[in-house]
């Protein structure tokens, strides 16, 4: 079985995330890392491998589209236990939106791994920077594959897959047959930390770097200039004005809060 895990390199959420002059996210000037939400996808892929009858027959490939530094995201996935990595890097990709990103990812996925098509494409629930949560659905659409998305549990039996999806109004069990696209939520189970052995082993794992021309993608189909949406304006939110803070002493806090709520007409 061949599993592709899509991992994104994102600016650290605890750092100072901001926009560049061209209104794209600055992905170079701030520290980046493997999107935490994609670690859950790597974890689920590794668990499927470990649970398989012949784990050595399961090949987990980490795929990433992003700038030079994004190779760190692929490396982290290899350190966690993925078998090999593919990093698509090309100046033309800068500023791509989800539509273009999904186009490039779909092309990488179509190549398959070691001459065989992927059985499973696994994604995180959202990227922690853009957080549109649309790339998995777009991949499914582009590849004409079923989508079993937002899984809090993933189970396989041969080519049959069942996931649990905690939707807005119901908890659903969704089933399908491979090949398919899966995305997993942060409810799917803690992701592992790379072990020392894992970190050492990762150095010897195959890591392929591809450009757009390697994939047969026209540079004119991706990037900021052809994005199907345009950002007109970005404004930093004005800092909230410092509020009033009171210490509760023998019931004074509750009274003060009730006064505040009444003054604001909430009571």
């Amino acid at each position: 079985m061949k599993i592709a895990v899509c991992v994104k390199y994102v600016p650290d959420a605890t750092g100072d995330r901001h926009f560049e002059d061209d209104k794209t996210v600055d992905r170079v000037g701030v520290d980046g890392l493997l999107s935490e939400l994609d670690e859950y996808a790597v974890e689920q892929a590794l668990q499927l491998k470990e649970k398989a009858e012949n784990p050595e027959d399961v090949v987990v490939t980490a795929l990433c589209v992003g700038p030079e530094a994004a190779v760190d995201a692929v490396r982290k996935a290899l350190q966690m236990g993925a078998d090999q990595g593919v990093h698509v890097v090309d100046d033309a990709i800068a500023g791509s939106d989800a539509i273009a990103t999904s186009l490039v990812l779909a092309k990488v996925i179509e190549r398959g791994a070691d001459g065989a098509p992927y059985d499973l494409v696994m994604c995180g629930m959202a990227s922690t920077d853009g957080s549109m949560s649309v790339v998995p659905a777009m991949l499914a659409e582009r590849l004409s594959l079923p989508q079993l998305t937002l899984a809090s549990k993933v189970e396989t039996q041969g080519a049959q897959v069942r996931i649990q999806r905690d939707g807005d109004t119901a908890t659903e069990v969704v089933g399908g047959t491979m090949p398919m696209v899966i995305s997993v939520t942060d409810q799917s189970g803690e992701a592992r930390y790379p072990s020392f052995k894992g970190i050492m082993a990762a150095k010897k794992k195959p890591l392929e770097t591809l450009s757009l021309s390697d994939l047969g993608v026209d540079a004119g189909d991706v990037g900021l200039s052809v994005a199907w949406t345009e950002v007109a304006e970005t404004t930093a939110r004005p800092p909230r004005e410092a509020g009033e803070i009171v210490k509760d002493e023998e019931g004074s806090g509750a009274k003060a809060l009730a006064d505040f709520l009444a003054a604001k007409k909430f009571i």
């Binding site: 009033e244 803070i245 806090g253 509750a254 003060a256 809060l257 505040f260």
Partner: peptide, 20 residues
């Protein structure tokens, strides 16, 4: 916050509920 209370929620909230 616009308004904050430094205190134990187990005493503050029930008292606010009463007030409300």
């Amino acid at each position: 916050v616009d308004f904050g209370v430094v205190g134990d929620l187990h005493t503050v909230l029930p008292a606010v509920t009463e007030e409300v």
